[in-house]
Design a protein around this nucleic acid. Structure first.
Length: 574
DNA sequence: GCCGTTTTCGGCCCGACTGTTTTCAGTCG
């Protein structure tokens, strides 16, 4: 049983306990442990094998350590089995309805014997819900609206999609004359790969007018809530938008609060409490006395903390780093010197070799690798050895004409279903740069996929593994692969792992990149561009690298190509 | 259920908004 599965058991336990109105702190303990295990770079199984205490994981105490060890080894979690017998899965679905929390859901289950979303809808339509104590006509309507919303299955946006909304809304809201400051916050500002709600923070002496302007934004379908300082609306194409308007002296504190993460804020407020201070969205207070809040730096300073880049605010390692005075200096997009994964019209790209080169030069890059598909990827018109050598001869001729820019002879070689690579070593040996990737057989069992990738890493001519989990956000789950083993092998063979900057891919994800850094495996951020415009995607990759705490030195393609070659430690310079 | 330089019990972040209330509980972020 892997960490994700263990975490899922703990989450479900928390759901049921919450539904049963258990001690909310006990519920939180299960949720905290679930999160900690999801983010832990080492598998529980290998910790147990190495006899490392699970209590090393913050949020896992003696009790949970024992339960988790048993779960990992036997696959059985007696407490959860028992709870499942008390509260069926279909009842837990009630908690997913917006506006229904554990208290109301439990009341519906207890008083009206409602055990599914269908039964809930029927009860609302028959006006039985409004008869319950604490419920009313409006609640009944809100539940029906929540049910309708749940059925449209609105998923999290890609960060790149959120960015389009944000830019549009910032431009729109800035037209209000009374907006003094305006900023997008939330998971968007933290650069998460996907974004749920859009959060905006404004400073204005006239909140009503700002909210009035937002209410007139053409794509709004519904105003969910509107008070004196806070407004929530739903946009026609799905996402919810929250706007908070605060006075100038609260901007820093409110930005911090509204950027989150929630867990980061919980730690901050706890630390404030230890010092006899209180932090809320209006500032830092000693008793009733305001002592800071104008900027985020001011707020952090009251706790002797440095300003944290938003990408790090996940309550993972940032506080421990800050306490040790070792907050990493994060990579910046301008530090990227080369792009080592892209396609041309020779396979499934939409631009020629020359166009990709011109596009890369226009973006200030110093080198690129052309990595068209290999022959097995026939749908993409993948290249065999003969066509590749022809392309590489063309690249040699092009390089003679280029000044201060290098085009590398590369290939994206397919890792075959049965194992092995799609091109022979004699061909690969002539390449400057080889990325290997899994395209087929993604449903194979974990052992098989892992073995294929480990073999590829062992090939002396492979430089990196591209899009190492195969996920497509909102469309395709990552294939089942033992990343721990892959990272270990990459380290042993001196290979790199790709962070694919395509906004739908972004794998390795932030957690896996952080694990790679721990293992000493360098990351290469690549666009996998299939046209010139997509060369711009590099910034999405950089954002995820920042979330992983990576600095310039951790990312291979911040270096000049000569240094990359040295790092790779193979074959003579070209 | 976790945690500890206010340690083995008694805390556990904080506030906005809504609806059903007539002072507050529930939900959300």
């Amino acid at each position: 049983m892997n960490n994700v599965q263990i975490a899922a058991c703990l989450e479900e336990t928390a759901d049921i306990l919450e539904f049963q109105a258990a001690n909310p702190f006990r519920v939180r303990a299960y949720r905290n442990a679930a999160r900690a295990i999801t983010e832990w770079p080492e598998s529980i199984a290998s910790m147990l094998a190495a006899e490392k205490p699970l209590t090393e994981i913050a949020g896992v105490g003696a009790d949970l350590a024992e339960k988790i060890a048993a779960l990992s080894m036997t696959g059985v979690f007696p407490l959860l089995e028992e709870l499942r017998g008390q509260v069926p899965q279909s009842v837990l679905a009630l908690l997913r309805v917006q506006g229904l929390g554990p208290k109301k859901a439990a009341a519906l289950h207890k008083e009206l014997k409602i055990a599914s979303l269908d039964e809930l809808r029927e009860a609302c339509e028959a006006h039985r819900v409004r008869e319950l104590k604490g419920f009313g006509e409006k609640t009944e309507q809100a539940i029906l609206a929540g049910l309708a919303l749940a059925s449209t299955a609105h998923e999290r946006m890609l960060w790149a999609e959120a960015d389009e909304w944000v830019q549009q809304l910032l431009a729109y809201l800035r037209t209000a004359p009374h907006v003094e400051q305006l900023q997008a916050a939330g998971s968007y500002r933290r650069g998460r790969d996907t974004v749920g709600d859009l959060d905006f923070l404004a400073v204005s002496s006239q909140p009503k007018e700002v909210m009035g302007l937002l209410a007139e934004f053409p794509e709004i379908s519904e105003v969910i809530a509107r008070g004196p300082t806070k407004m929530s609306v739903r946009l026609a194409k799905g996402p919810q938008l929250d706007l908070r308007v605060v006075p100038a002296e609260a901007f820093g504190a409110a930005l911090l609060y509204f950027t989150g993460s929630k867990d980061h804020n919980v730690v901050l407020r706890g630390r404030a409490k230890d010092r006899g201070l209180k932090i809320n969205e209006y500032g830092v207070f000693e008793g009733d006395r305001y002592i800071a809040g104008l900027t985020e730096e001011d707020v952090y300073a009251t706790l002797d903390l440095p300003w944290f880049p938003p990408e790090l605010r996940e309550a993972r390692h940032e506080f421990e780093w800050a306490d040790a005075g070792a907050l990493p200096e994060l990579i910046e997009p301008e530090q990227i010197q080369g792009d080592l994964h892209m396609h041309t019209t020779e396979s499934d790209g939409q631009a020629s070799l020359e166009e990709m080169v011109a596009g890369a030069q226009a973006r200030g890059l110093k080198y690129i690798a052309i990595t068209d598909h290999s022959k097995r990827v026939s749908m993409a018109n993948g290249l065999d050895g003969r066509r590749l050598r022809k392309q590489w001869a063309q690249i040699d001729r092009l390089n003679e004409k280029l000044k201060g820019f290098t085009v590398l002879k590369g290939v994206e070689v397919d890792i075959l279903e049965k194992g092995g690579l799609d091109l022979t070593d004699d061909v690969l040996a002539e390449a400057d740069w080889v990325v290997a990737s899994v395209h087929y057989g993604q449903n194979q069992p974990r052992e098989q996929i892992t073995k294929r990738i480990l073999e590829a890493l062992a090939n002396p001519y492979v430089s990196a593994i591209a899009h190492p989990t195969g996920r497509l956000l909102n469309r395709r789950n990552p294939y089942d692969v033992d990343l721990e083993a892959v990272l270990k092998a990459a380290h042993e063979h001196g290979k790199f792992m790709e962070l694919n900057a395509n906004p739908s891919r972004l794998d390795l994800d932030d957690l896996a990149c952080a694990a790679a850094k721990l293992q000493g495996v360098p990351i290469v951020i690549s666009t996998d561009a299939h046209n010139v415009d997509s060369l711009n995607h590099i910034r999405y990759g950089v954002l995820q690298a920042r979330r992983a705490g990576l600095g310039k030195a951790d990312v291979v393609n911040t270096h000049a190509w000569k240094q990359v070659q040295k790092l790779l430690g193979k074959r003579s310079a070209k």
